[in-house]
Design a protein around this nucleic acid. Structure first.
Lengths: 193, 193
DNA sequence: TTATTTTTTGGCCATGCGGTCAGAAAATCG
DNA sequence: CGATTTTCTGACCGCATGGCCAAAAAATAA
């Protein structure tokens, strides 16, 4: 894949993210994305197999960036409590700085369906995040930092709380996201220790 | 509104719930709903102003039933801890017994949009549930049962965990929903006290 | 019964969608 | 430079949707 072709794909993806974030999935047609990018509709079909592949590329790209950010922040942490707090805070940090990406992600999660009409990204398709969270709590138990509990409950609850940040705070300006993330971290630390 | 007309509306709503739960929002067209109900498509237009009104009626009906169930179960509770546990368990109880309704609700929540393409039922459109949860924690603080914390965090986290039950367990057969609900109740009790 | 109103039918319409494609344009090659 | 390949355009297609409505059917009234 040439550099130029890769640049076109990136341009289309960037345009799609902005359109998704501003008008929602239902109105984010290929025509709208193309118009916003200043190109013809056919170019999208030329560079992507179809709308689904475009959406999946968007998800992959955004997810990769979030994961990179979180992993980088987790680097120096050695305790489960520190990991727990860092995980929540760094996710909030990334959300705060890339709101439209998070909005676009939510649009795709809630709307992209497979051929049978089922959600392509269900509540727990994102196994990576779930497992990352579960790993933190499992580690905390192994070191004795965290009390014994049902890991599934802990991880699901933690994941869904982060999802709530995605769905709610990403589209609600005016909140001190960092302060809320700190409170959330306190909450889970309290429940775990 | 006559009894007969009300019965027709109820029949259409029931059919729509089943279709939504089985094939998803995207494929739950008026034609599909009518065919499943054994009536003509035009009847739906005759009894409902449009698809949106039908969907809103479905949401209202399901929500009313859930609220009635939960309120009835909360009746005898006098402590915040008891309310907290009863709230989670009774929601799970109702989900277990009305899975297709919950599935249909999720479909509508994630897909019904207003004219501008924004979700009609956002993460916190359901202010009633949020406030009911918040009320429990507020009561717990006032009586000294619960420690001091940010009510928003507590209520949002609790609500999103319940939403996770909606989105995940409702479409995942084979889980002991009641057992999970008890674990969840333990989790929040631990975080609160 | 007949007249009137309510309800239902099924075809029709405009709209918007994703995808396709022949030809134009641009870039690259020889 | 011309020849060839890559990229882009914009019109077009088939399809599905929600909504509409004249006419039929059913229910009700007189």
């Amino acid at each position: 894949m040439s550099f130029i072709e890769e640049a076109r794909r990136a341009q289309i993806i960037a345009s799609a993210i902005e359109v998704l974030a501003s008008v929602g999935f239902a109105k984010a047609s290929l025509a709208a994305i193309a118009k916003h990018a200043g190109i013809s509709k056919g170019v999208i079909s030329y560079h992507f197999a179809g709308k689904d592949e475009l959406m999946e590329e968007i998800v992959n790209q955004i997810y990769t960036k979030i994961a990179e950010h979180v992993v980088a922040r987790l680097e120096g942490q050695t305790t489960a409590v520190g990991m727990l707090r860092t995980h929540i805070l760094s996710v909030a940090e990334h959300m705060r700085d890339h709101r439209s990406q998070i909005q676009a992600l939510g649009e795709i999660f809630h709307n992209l369906r497979d051929a049978e009409g089922r959600p392509r990204y269900g509540a727990h398709t994102n196994e990576e995040v779930y497992q990352a969270v579960e790993h933190i709590y499992r580690f905390g138990q192994s070191t004795g930092e965290f009390r014994a509990f049902d890991l599934r409950i802990m991880a699901v609850t933690h994941s869904s709380a982060v999802d709530a940040m995605f769905a709610y705070w990403a589209v609600t300006p005016g909140h001190d996201l960092d302060a809320h993330a700190r409170e959330l971290a306190d909450f889970f630390e309290r429940a775990a220790t």
